[in-house]
Amino acid sequence: MVVVVVVVAKERLMSPAGNGARPAETGAKCVRAGVESGNMRSTLEGRLRCGQQIHLQLFGWRVRIVKLRQVVAIGHLPPVDAVRPAYNSRMIRLDSLRQRLRRHVLRVALVLFAFGACGAAAAQTGAAPAVPDTMQQRVAACTSCHGVHGEGSPDSVAIPRLAGKPAGYLVQQLEYFQTGQRRHAPMEYVVRQLSPAYLRDIADYFAQQDVSYRKLPVPAVSAETLRRGEQLVMRGDSTRGVPSCVSCHGGKLTGVEPMMPGLMGLSYDYLNTQLVSWRTRQRAAEGPYCMGVVANRMRESDIAAVSAWLASHEPPADMRPEPASAQTEPLPGWCVMGKSGAAQ
């Protein structure tokens, strides 16, 4: 039993100055933060006293809240996914003019919370705070950078979104980080001591997440560059032997089950870095491999153009990867299958 006080405030997620990232949906993250906390007591006690600036801090995932404004709910709440769509209707909106009442409500909330927390503690054996037995709680090492639902990092455009990517693709990448076929030291260290079964669970967790996309910053590039990008993405360049992105990554570029990752909702920096990594073998796979071959056939300016077009393209409403049956065109002959039967 977890007793939760959810506090929603007018929030502004901090984003690196000048990169143009817009604040995430107002309120949404706070709701999640509140519900997901198994041990909110210290956070709330320490923070609500002054009533002005509130930081909710969960497992290193930083949510900065400026000016407390609304109290959503007090008491037992259903799991986060059930709460999110409904939270608007549960809000008790506080008039910003009634400052005193606001303080009063907050005080009551704290008291109620303390009551609930004591009850919860008494109901359990021992005083240890209850730790939710969920994948979300277990993968704190992942979500502190990639977001609680794998939505990507608000602080860094280089950290990719994981939500909704095909599970097969995600588990393969985790295995590659273990074997060193894909290099990024912090990732390699974190996945080092995990079993294949657990890697699969982690991949499934992020594959099942369904959260809306953030608008990502795009570099200022010329219309000419964007046109070249669009050409490569949609039609490829037969003179250089470069197939189009859509021929493998799905007509909507949202990926294809079970192995082909989507290319939407990723930042220019990330896409650019990955294409270069294929060329320099920081990303690799067994034998001759599709993306490595493609990336090596592209000019550097082509890589920038493709990344810029993909990052600036508005993602479709339905971001789910297409079913495997959607892949009608056969992969090019030089594209070999890797260890797990996936096209590389």
């Binding site: 995932w61 994948m135 277990r138 704190a140 502190s144 912090p186 260290y189 001591q193 657990y198």
Partner: peptide, 21 residues
């Protein structure tokens, strides 16, 4: 570095700590 406790038969789905680097 954060990271996971090792995944073992006795603790197949370990909890983890965020890296703060």
């Amino acid at each position: 570095l954060g990271g996971f406790a090792p995944a073992t038969a006795g603790n197949p789905k370990p909890y983890s700590m965020p890296p703060f680097a």
